[in-house]
């Protein structure tokens, strides 16, 4: 069961809510030991996909394999999950809340309590070990829940929008925790629509839009979808300059932006110098994941029409 080469396999997952196909044939393959991002705009179907993978809801079509198990429940004790909508019992103490989540996944209470104290200490929440959840700030409670989802040292950690609601300091702590869990050997699957985290963390990623997977690959492969961008700053600007620049050039203050021409930039620079515009600044930049994401999602929206979900007659 656990010898399956991939931590997660989703094959043609479909989920309908009424007449809407919220997830419309999503395929995913998450390698073991990888940090895998599921990116997509709001309402793309990320959460529904993750919930199907975990067995919270059943797909209408398609199959999924989780840590080699055909039914997610069979791998339940080896999975950790942080849902998008955070939830803890307000009257529980932080240590108990973590131990309880561990106990649900097969960890005995005593070990859970001991690990909880260690983890809270390591996360800078040592003072909150015996505090009730209702007395913690939202960010602290979120960290407690995150620790609860990994206290049993799972092989697969599924995090749904883990960074939302966290301040920059706690976001950094969370990134460190994700990397530490990966170093321990766990596979991490997380959803987000914040590209910076995905760009820093992900070994591979999938972009979902309109209920369908629109891209799957590494961060570099995603960025490679777009040609490099040129940022050019002339000594002066007048109406004739735009005629010399490529058609997609846009002005941004004193500088101009345009895609790197396929034939190279040397000829263009020669013409600009000859025309007296000179070069006050020049940079050739690789597009970030953000730009790649916007393009992928934009193409998906254009292909699907104005709605971001695919609609079919019932």
């Amino acid at each position: 069961m656990s010898s399956h080469p991939s931590a997660v396999v989703a094959d043609g997952l479909v989920k309908r809510f009424g007449d809407r196909r919220v997830v419309d044939g999503v395929d995913l393959v998450v390698p073991r030991g990888a940090i895998y991002g599921v990116l997509g705009p709001n309402g793309a179907g990320k959460t529904t996909t993750l919930r199907m993978l975990l067995g919270i809801i059943e797909p209408d079509e398609g199959e999924r394999i989780l840590l080699g198990a055909r039914h997610p429940r069979d791998a339940g004790d080896r999975v950790g999950y942080l849902p998008e909508e955070r939830g803890l019992y307000p009257a529980m103490k932080a240590r108990e809340a973590i131990a309880f989540m561990g106990a649900l996944r097969g960890l005995d209470w005593a070990t859970g309590r001991a690990r909880a104290a260690e983890m809270l200490e390591a996360a800078g929440l040592g003072h909150a070990v015996d505090e009730k959840i209702r007395k913690l700030s939202k960010g602290m409670a979120q960290l407690v829940q995150l620790l609860g989802s990994v206290v049993h040292r799972p092989d697969l950690i599924v995090l749904d929008e883990p960074f939302s609601g966290l301040d920059p300091v706690n976001q950094e702590r969370l990134e460190a925790l994700i990397l530490a869990e990966r170093d321990r050997g766990a596979t991490i699957l997380f959803s987000t629509h914040v590209m910076a985290h995905a760009q820093r963390l992900c070994d591979r990623l999938a972009v979902i839009a309109g209920g369908r997977r629109r891209f799957e690959g590494t961060v570099d492969e995603a960025r490679g979808l777009l040609p490099p961008q040129v940022r050019y700053v002339p000594h002066h600007t007048d109406a004739a300059l735009a005629d010399l620049l490529p058609g997609d050039a846009t002005r941004d203050g004193d500088s101009w932006r345009f895609q790197l021409p396929a034939e190279g930039i040397e000829g263009l620079l020669t013409r600009l110098i000859a025309a007296g515009y000179g070069i006050a600044g020049l940079a050739i930049e690789r597009p970030g994941l953000h730009e790649a994401f916007v393009r992928i999602v934009g193409e998906a929206a254009a292909a699907s029409g104005p709605a971001t979900v695919t609609e079919r007659a019932a």
Binding site: I56, P83, G87, L104
Partner: peptide, 17 residues
């Protein structure tokens, strides 16, 4: 209703039938 209001149900449903 307690689980629904606290949104703990998602954690329970993911771990337990």
């Amino acid at each position: 209703a307690e689980e629904r209001n606290n949104k703990v149900i998602e954690v329970l449903a993911a771990a337990v039938p």
